[in-house]
Computed example of a mutant assay.
Amino acid sequence: MVRFSNNLIGILNFLTFLLSIPILGAGIWLSTRASTDCEKFLERPLIALGVFLLVVSLAGLIGACCSVSWLLWIYLFVMFALILLVFCFTIFAFVVTNKGAGEVVSGRGYKEYRLGDYSNWLQKRVLNEGNWAKIRSCIRDSKVCNSLSEKNQTFDQFVNDNLTPLQSGCCTPPTACNFTFVNETAWNKPQGFTNSSITDCNTWQNDPSILCYDCQSCKAGVLANLKNDWKKVAIVNIVFLIFLVIVYSIGCCAFRNNRRNNFHGWKGGNA
């Protein structure tokens, strides 16, 4: 029973080692095949995650199974730092996504979104031109507006549709603009239209490559989508955090076993 914790840590880290191989392989594959900004964005995080899992799992595996205490100590240190990081990120995710919600518009089955409703930290991320250029490219690559226009709906069908935050904010002009419906992603400006007090009305273009991709409503739609995703990630992180604490506790038992075995081995050698 004394070696149970060492064996369990060894098995867990062997599984982690196996998991790191396809993750690292996917990152390397993307680095050679990526053609869009979204794919390139995933390339470095995947490689970094793969290398991290590979190194840490090897340290835990060798440290537990071969009774190498200094490797197991490094493993436990990294695990403790990871627990702190996941805990802090979970709290941060709940805090920055606490504000912001879509607004129900009269006569519409979907919600519209305002950038000012979200936290200042999130607003600064999408207002940064460099960040937004990458996000805008990803939205275009995802063809989210193309999928909306392919529905070929009538106006009545459209206004009762349950649009996603991205479709509502990036693919259509705000309802307050009072544009005339042509199809889901084409809206005519009223005759004699001049600059509106609503910035997004001036920004909207029927050009499929422009639409409302630079609108404040589009940036708000991205944040609404991000908020929903981060809420889910935060919940998953709580489960992951509990798992990490359990593994860390087992690792501490394995470390004590190593110290005890090394101590007895040292005494036996001196006897």
Rank of each mutant, 00 (worst) to 15 (best):
F4R: 12
I11P: 11
F14T: 06
T16M: 12
L18D: 03
L19R: 11
S20C: 04
L24S: 03
G25Y: 06
A26T: 00
S31K: 15
S31E: 03
T32A: 12
T36Y: 10
K40V: 11
F41D: 04
L42D: 01
V55P: 05
V55M: 00
V56I: 02
A59E: 09
C66L: 07
V68P: 12
L71Q: 09
I74E: 07
Y75K: 06
V78I: 11
V86Y: 07
F89L: 15
V95M: 10
V95R: 05
V96I: 13
T97L: 06
T97N: 08
N98A: 12
K99I: 00
V104W: 15
S106W: 13
G107M: 01
G109M: 03
E112L: 02
Y113G: 07
G116M: 13
L122E: 06
L122C: 03
R125L: 15
E129Y: 14
S137Q: 15
R140G: 08
S149G: 06
E150K: 14
K151W: 09
K151G: 01
N152Y: 05
Q153S: 13
T154I: 08
N160T: 13
N162P: 11
L163P: 09
G169L: 05
C170W: 10
P174Q: 06
F179S: 03
T180P: 15
F181S: 00
A186Q: 07
A186L: 09
W187C: 15
N188I: 01
Q191C: 06
F193Q: 05
I198W: 07
P208N: 05
I210C: 02
C215D: 02
V222W: 15
V222E: 04
V233D: 08
N237M: 15
I238R: 08
I242D: 04
V247W: 04
S249M: 13
G251S: 11
N257Q: 07
N261H: 06
W266A: 12
G268K: 13
N270D: 11
